[in-house]
């Protein structure tokens, strides 16, 4: 974590940076080759921390060509196609913005989806400030509440980038749940193949909302977190969209987050990790303030992106050398 003055010096020295921190600090930074997003929650060098006084910094090597692109609802579908042929892209989207919702729902249908690594996060605000502040993103010059910023990074020919995730959750042995449409909310679902009122199902089963719905993507577990149950409209809301045709099960309970998480950390590639972030829900539900999860640092965000939007998951990108 760095002070405002330290980050100013880095930008003025021409460094290429990925930044996360309070909007007041980000707004004071000079123009330069950086992107950033608002968030006060971090996994720092000394453990989980909530701060508006320091910025999290990831530095992109000066050896790499980069380009910064800004996307709105009308061109976000180009985000995968705009990537360098041999490279990766880092995206930041403001929470609850139209472009966030469109990306979450439609990304898998965009041209060139998953052809090149796209990783990133959803910017947010301190939970005490939800009613008064809006999440923002920065492109090294301007800031936006309803656009996504992306840094496309071109690697050298002998290098490659790879995205992985660390997810402490796995599918439980309960009911199989399928949804009738791609959506951030549901009022109906197929429970073991039979259509039921999903709101009533959640109430009857008294589902613990700390434990996400989990889909099995060929051995990789992909989470969708519960946001809330709307008693007035009898709907269940999620932090990421559920997709029609994907079978979900609620996660098994996890007793000790840190122990489970640390057992899954990729210790052998720590030095090769170029970017990482984790989920604010993991921070909150597992009370991570002041506690360390391995040696990997990053923002604790309102949503993680590993090709598509995920929840309650740590995502990371490593850069490695190809074999001759």
């Amino acid at each position: 974590m760095y002070t405002l003055e330290e980050v100013k010096d880095k930008i003025n020295a021409g460094e290429t940076l990925l930044l996360a921190g309070d909007g007041n600090l980000l707004s004071q930074l000079p123009n330069g080759n950086w992107i950033g997003g608002t968030i006060p929650y971090f996994m720092g060098e000394d453990g989980g921390i909530i701060t508006k006084d320091k910025l999290l910094v990831d530095t992109i090597s000066k050896d790499f060509d980069t380009k910064i692109s800004v996307y709105d609802n009308d061109n976000i579908h180009n985000v995968y196609s705009d990537a360098y042929d041999n490279g990766y892209s880092i995206i930041i989207l403001p929470a609850s913005s139209d472009v966030h919702l469109k990306f979450a729902l439609k990304a898998p249908s965009f041209d060139n989806f998953a052809m090149q690594p796209l990783i990133g996060w959803i910017s947010g605000v301190h939970l005490d400030d939800l009613a008064t502040e809006k999440a923002r993103v920065f492109d090294g010059n301007s800031n936006y509440e309803n656009r996504a910023v992306v840094m496309h990074v071109k690697l050298e020919e002998h290098q490659y980038a790879e995205i992985e995730i660390v997810n402490i959750f796995s599918q439980g042995d309960g009911d199989t749940i399928e949804f009738l449409e791609d959506s951030f909310s549901a009022d109906k679902a197929l429970i073991n193949g039979i259509e039921k009122d999903f709101y009533e199902y959640v109430k009857e089963k008294n589902l613990d909302m700390k434990f996400p719905l989990v889909a099995d993507y060929y051995g990789t577990m992909v989470n969708i977190s519960f946001q809330n149950v709307d008693d007035d409209n009898k709907k269940v809301y999620f932090y990421a969209p559920v997709f029609k045709g994907v079978p979900y099960k609620q996660a098994n309970k996890v007793d000790n987050y840190i122990e489970t998480f640390n057992s899954k950390l990729p210790v052998e590639i720590k030095d090769k990790i170029a970017f990482s972030c984790n989920c604010i829900l993991n921070f909150l539900y597992s009370d991570l303030e002041g506690k360390k999860t391995g040696n990997i640092t990053g923002a604790m965000t309102f949503g993680e992106i590993a090709y598509q939007l995920l929840n309650q998951t740590m995502v990371y990108l490593s850069v490695d050398e190809l074999e001759d």
Binding site: S109, A114, M115, Y218, G245, Q308
Partner: peptide, 13 residues
């Protein structure tokens, strides 16, 4: 490969 996994799920859906 995570990219292949998410892409295969996308195609099947």
């Amino acid at each position: 490969t995570l990219g292949a996994k998410v892409l295969l799920m996308r195609q099947q859906v």
